[in-house]
Design a protein around this nucleic acid. Structure first.
Lengths: 202, 202
DNA sequence: ACCGATGTACAACGTTCGTTGTAGAAATTA
DNA sequence: TAATTTCTACAACGAACGTTGTACATCGGT
């Protein structure tokens, strides 16, 4: 594949991500996406066939991108854990910081969750596999390690991974996708980690 | 207001909820909504002005409906708590059971979260106030009571309420809006309540 | 039984949008 | 430089949709 071809392709995928994340599948027009990507509409059709094909390609591309970043955060912070509380806090902060960093992606995820009934099952499955499921499995594996070493007490590692992710990014759901100030983010993560480790038992 | 008027109005609100929850704002056509509600399209415009007005009315109507149900669950289960673990489990099951019961509503919420940038702030604010915020406040107040009585140990009741709600309905996010079998739901709630009370500390 | 309000059927309008065909420009490769 | 692939500009289409006006039917209250 020539240099120009791949350049145009990523330009389309990234431009489409911006527009699709903001406007959703139905509202986003091919013209708007072409303008954002600085590309002719014809080129989009030549590359992706139709609008649905473009949507699916964008989903997979963005999911892969973000999954790699999250896997890197997992590897960097949970590779060598000594003090469970501080290390989990650091990991939680890195984890929660990455979310607003990929605001477009998570806006796209909200679009996917709204559009689910109108997206082919195969595409959903492909997305889950390259994105969320892969990340959650990796996190669960680390959780299991920590449990085996006696630093945590976990029955179901996959569920524990889900619980952790929920707790450390449990910001006010009235404003999803809005970045918190550093201080608020730290407070949220600290509270999440504390609840994860110690719960609210009296 | 005459009987016929209110009948037609609720028919429109409920029919619109079904279509909007399934198709989203842009994809849902007035014709489809009118057909679902067994009403002429003209009547919709006479009642709600335009499509946006209908959408906002549906949001508020559905949010109010579900909030009342959730408040009832809170009152019924957290009025008299003796054994914190069993009572929280019962409450969690009732809470999690109510969610698939109002599947349409929560599908609509997913649509709202996707459409947020295209909905007037005033409408979002109205929705948050009559729905989620009201429920979360009530739950937080109960949590604070339990904490004051020594049955829980809570610093931030509002955050604790959010954590509880997240944990007891933390089913596999790969299939949002899909009802779990009773057994799986119980397992999920039990694990959530356990994490809420005791955490995963080693 | 009558009257006013409310609902319906229908046609029409302007707009937006996905998609395709085509002819020519631009860049890549040989 | 020549050949081939890739991209662009542009026009055109058919379909779907929100919205409005209007004339007629229908129902609730008196």
């Amino acid at each position: 594949m020539a240099r120009r071809t791949t350049d145009k392709r990523t330009a389309m995928l990234e431009g489409a991500l911006v527009i699709l994340a903001r406007d959703g599948y139905t509202r986003a027009s091919i013209d708007a996406i072409a303008a954002e990507a600085d590309v002719s509409t014809r080129t989009i059709y030549n590359h992706f066939g139709d609008k649905a094909g473009l949507f699916e390609a964008v989903i997979e591309h963005s999911a892969d991108r973000v999954a790699e970043a999250q896997l890197a955060v997992i590897d960097r912070h949970l590779w060598k854990v000594t003090d469970i509380e501080t290390d989990l806090r650091d990991f939680g902060r890195a984890w929660a910081t990455a979310i607003p960093e990929y605001a477009d992606h998570f806006a796209l995820v909200r679009q996917i969750n709204a559009e689910r009934g109108h997206i082919p099952d195969a595409a959903i499955e492909r997305w889950q596999q390259t994105g969320p499921r892969r990340v959650r499995s990796a996190l669960a594996a680390r959780m299991k390690e920590l449990s085996d070493r006696g630093l945590l007490k976990i029955d179901d590692p996959d569920l524990a991974a889900l619980h952790f992710a929920l707790l450390v990014s449990a910001n006010d759901p009235s404003q999803p996708g809005v970045a918190l100030a550093d201080h608020d983010l730290d407070t949220m993560v600290d509270a999440g980690v504390h609840a994860f480790l110690h719960g609210y038992g009296g």
